[in-house]
Design a protein around this nucleic acid. Structure first.
Lengths: 262, 262
DNA sequence: CGACCTTTTGATTGGCGTCAAAATCTGTGG
DNA sequence: CCACAGATTTTGACGCCAATCAAAAGGTCG
C-alpha cells in the first residue's frame, strides 16, 4: 500500500479564483452577503493525490468536505476486505456529513484522480445553520438527491440485469460530469473524461470485472458507446436511456423541496 | 382495488395522550419550550386503514408526516407495475420529506396495518428550522440513518445471498420494532408482532416469494426463527447476526453527529 | 525493456427465477 | 358454526444469468 501524506495548501486566498465557492452546489442560491459569511468558515483546502484516502470508515471526522476538483470514490470495505463502491463523488459534491449514531463516518473516501477538497469544521455546522437556515435545507436537499439515487439502486437492484445496471451508471456519470465539469465535455464527440477501470465499474454496480467487460464489449459492438483512453463517448444515448430507465432529473444538482424554493 | 378514503380525526387534543409527540424520535432532545412551539405546527392526524395509500410517488405533497402507530411500506412502482419496496416505516419514522428537484415525492407510502400518522405543513419547515436549528440537524441525522441503511443494502446487494439478505431484514425489523414499539415485544419468547407476508419480504430484499419461502423454511429447520400468525420469534440471534453481518448500531434511532450533540 | 495493471475471451458451475400445482390459512356471509 | 373464495405458504422440475477459474493479450510507467 503506497501511502503518501495529504498536502495542505497554504494561503487559501490564491485558490479562490480557481475554485470559486460560488459555483458549488451547496452554496448555490445563498444570498451574497451570506455567502461571504460562510466563507469565514472555510478552513483548509487539500490536494488529495490519486489512490490516497481522505478519510476512512469508522473514524471520527472533525471535518466535512466539499469536492472542488477531481473524481473520488465513496466505498465500504467488507469483512473479507473487498471494496464496495457506494458512489462516485464529482466536483460540487459534499462529503463526510453522514455519520452513524456514534459519530463515525460509515464509508471511506479515496481519490481516483488528483482531487482538491475544501474542509469545513463539523463543529460549526449548527452555528452555520442558525445563521443561514436555507443552507440546512439545501444540505438536506442534496442528501435527498443522494437518497433518491441510492433508493433507486436499491429498488431496482434485482430487477435490473447487467446491461441495465451498467448503462445506468454510464449515463449517470456522463450527466453528472457535464453538470459541474463542463470543461471536460467535448460536444464534438459527445464525450467526457472517464477515469474508471472496468473493475471499478463492477464494484459500483455489483458485477465482476469479467462480466462488465463482456457487457461493455457488447455495447461497443452495438454502437452505443466508445470507451478508450480514459474517455467515454456516448454514441446512442437514446438506446442506453431506454434500456436503463435512466432519468436525467434523478441526478439534477438542485433537488430542493418545491414549496421551500420560493 | 379496494379504495377506502382516508379518515381525518377531529380535535387533535384528545389524541395527545395516546400519541405523545414527546416520544417521537424526531422531537427527542428538543427543549420543552421549543417542543410546545413545534406543537403549533402539528396539523392533522389521520387514520390510514390497511392497504390504503398515504401518498403516491410523483405527487406534489403539501405535508410531511410522522408515523405514530402501525406499519407502513415505502415503495416505488416499476414500469411493469411491480412494487419495489424501499423500506418499512415503523412508529417514530418521518415520511415524505424527500422530494426530487421538481418537488415530487419519489416513492409511495401505504399502510400494512392500521396506522396513525400526523401531518405537518411542508411550507412551515423552514420557519421551524429557523426557530429550532437543532431540529434541522436531527432531521438530517434521521436522514443519515436511513441513508446508511440504504447504502449498506446497495453496497452488499450482490455479495449477499438470499440467506444473508433475509436474515438481515428480519433482524433489522426485529430491532427497530423493539425501539419504538416495546409493547409489541414479548421477552418470554423473544418475539415481536410481524405483519409481513413472504411476498412483501421478497419485494423488500429483491427475491421471489418462492425463494423467500425456501430460505425461511431452512431457517426454521435450523432452529433460527419461528414465524407464524403474524409473530416473529428469534431463536438464535447469534447465528442470524453472524451470517448477515448485522450491526445493531445501524438501526439506532439517534444517529446524531457526535460533535453536535453536546 | 520488464513488472504490473487492465482488458479480453473461453469453459464450467451454481443460485435464483419461472412455471405449475397442491396445501394451508383467513375472513366473510349464511 | 360451517362453507366457500381468495390469499398465502409450500414443494418440485427446469432454465438462465452471472460468478468462478484460467489464461492470453494489450497498456502503462519507471
Amino acid at each position: 500500500m503506497k501511502k503518501k501524506s495529504i498536502q495542505i495548501r497554504k494561503e487559501a486566498h490564491t485558490e479562490c479564483t480557481q475554485c470559486p465557492i460560488r459555483k458549488l452546489a451547496l452554496f448555490q442560491g445563498v444570498a451574497p452577503d451570506r455567502l461571504e459569511w460562510t466563507q469565514k468558515f472555510r478552513d483548509q483546502q487539500f490536494v488529495v493525490p490519486p489512490k490516497v484516502t481522505l478519510y476512512r470508515e469508522g473514524s471520527l471526522t472533525d471535518y466535512v468536505y466539499t469536492l472542488f476538483d477531481g473524481w473520488m470514490v465513496m466505498y465500504q470495505t467488507s469483512r473479507e476486505g473487498k471494496r464496495q463502491i457506494l458512489r462516485f463523488a464529482l466536483p460540487g459534491d459534499f462529503l463526510g456529513f453522514q455519520t452513524d449514531q456514534r459519530g463515525m463516518v460509515s464509508h471511506s473516501v479515496s481519490a481516483l484522480s488528483e482531487s482538491i477538497v475544501c474542509g469545513f469544521p463539523r463543529s460549526r455546522l449548527e452555528e452555520m445553520f442558525k445563521e443561514t437556515p436555507s443552507l440546512a435545507l439545501r444540505l438536506a436537499s442534496m442528501g435527498s438527491r443522494d437518497m433518491n439515487l441510492c433508493q433507486h439502486h436499491q429498488a431496482f437492484r434485482s430487477r435490473k440485469d447487467a446491461y441495465e445496471s451498467i448503462a445506468f451508471l454510464l449515463l449517470e456519470l456522463f450527466h453528472r460530469t457535464q453538470i459541474h465539469m463542463n470543461h471536460h465535455y467535448d460536444p464534438k464527440t459527445n464525450s467526457v473524461t472517464f477515469p474508471l477501470t472496468q473493475e471499478e465499474i463492477g464494484d459500483a454496480v455489483g458485477l465482476t470485472n469479467v462480466h462488465v467487460n463482456r457487457i461493455l464489449r457488447q455495447f461497443h459492438k452495438l454502437g452505443l458507446i466508445n470507451c478508450h483512453h480514459k474517455r467515454l463517448h456516448i454514441l446512442d444515448e437514446e438506446k442506453l436511456s431506454d434500456m436503463s430507465e435512466f432519468d436525467k432529473s434523478m441526478v439534477s444538482s438542485n433537488p430542493l423541496a418545491y414549496s421551500l424554493d420560493q
